[in-house]
Computed example of a mutant assay.
Amino acid sequence: MNYWLMKSEPNVYGIEHLERDRTTIWDGVRNYQARNFLKSMQVGDRAFFYHSNTNPPGIVGLMQIVAAQVVDPSQFNLDGDYYDPKSTPTAPRWHTVTVEFVRTFDNAITLATLRERFTPEQLLVVKQGNRLSVMPIPLRIATEILQLAG
């Protein structure tokens, strides 16, 4: 099992939405490196849910990958923010995953706490200027994050 960190703005789709919905497709990612990370995910992998663009930002819960290599339907929505005119149903450019709620952490693990605990080499989210919305988490670091979460 691999671990990942996946960012979302809580006012767009937060951990509370996932807890209510139980599962969701993680659509709308339009960064090639993040897309490649999504394509690397496997059923059973775990992902930390990170609230971004909020005060304070941080890891708020845990989810599990329940479907991999899912074609992102938002690339075909002509009126949507994530439409890609170069994508076709026979040759989609964007793939994603379906995630399932596992748990909400009692206390968010803030970005400030993550920066105190980990170096940018250990945890990409603490790297200055990193804007990736999906990134891998080494197993040793994931174990420490889970310990911080209680």
Rank of each mutant, 00 (worst) to 15 (best):
K7D: 00
K7V: 08
K7H: 04
P10F: 06
P10C: 00
N11D: 09
G14P: 04
G14T: 00
G14D: 00
E19H: 01
R20G: 02
R20T: 02
D21W: 12
W26C: 10
W26A: 03
G28F: 13
V29L: 08
V29F: 04
N31T: 08
N31A: 08
Q33C: 09
A34I: 06
R35D: 09
F37I: 13
L38D: 13
L38N: 06
K39N: 11
K39F: 09
S40F: 14
M41P: 15
Q42L: 13
D45F: 08
A47S: 11
F48I: 00
F49N: 04
F49R: 06
S52V: 07
S52I: 10
N53K: 05
G58Y: 04
I59S: 01
G61H: 00
L62M: 03
L62T: 08
L62Y: 10
M63D: 06
Q64A: 02
I65T: 02
A67G: 11
A68F: 09
A68L: 00
A68V: 11
Q69A: 15
Q69L: 02
V70A: 13
V71L: 04
V71Q: 15
P73S: 07
S74E: 13
N77G: 12
L78R: 15
D79R: 00
D79G: 08
D79Q: 14
D79L: 12
G80M: 04
G80W: 13
G80H: 09
G80F: 06
Y83E: 02
Y83P: 06
P85I: 00
K86M: 10
S87W: 05
P89Y: 07
T90A: 11
A91L: 12
A91D: 03
W94K: 13
W94A: 11
H95N: 15
T96E: 10
V97R: 07
T98Q: 04
E100G: 13
F101M: 10
V102P: 01
V102L: 02
T104I: 07
T104H: 03
F105N: 03
D106K: 15
D106A: 06
D106F: 09
A108W: 08
A108H: 01
I109V: 10
I109T: 11
I109A: 10
L114Q: 12
R115Y: 14
E116T: 12
R117S: 03
F118A: 07
P120F: 07
P120L: 04
E121T: 11
E121P: 05
E121F: 10
Q122P: 12
Q122F: 10
L124H: 03
L124D: 11
V125D: 15
K127G: 01
K127A: 07
K127S: 01
Q128N: 11
G129Y: 05
G129T: 01
G129W: 06
R131K: 09
R131F: 00
L132M: 15
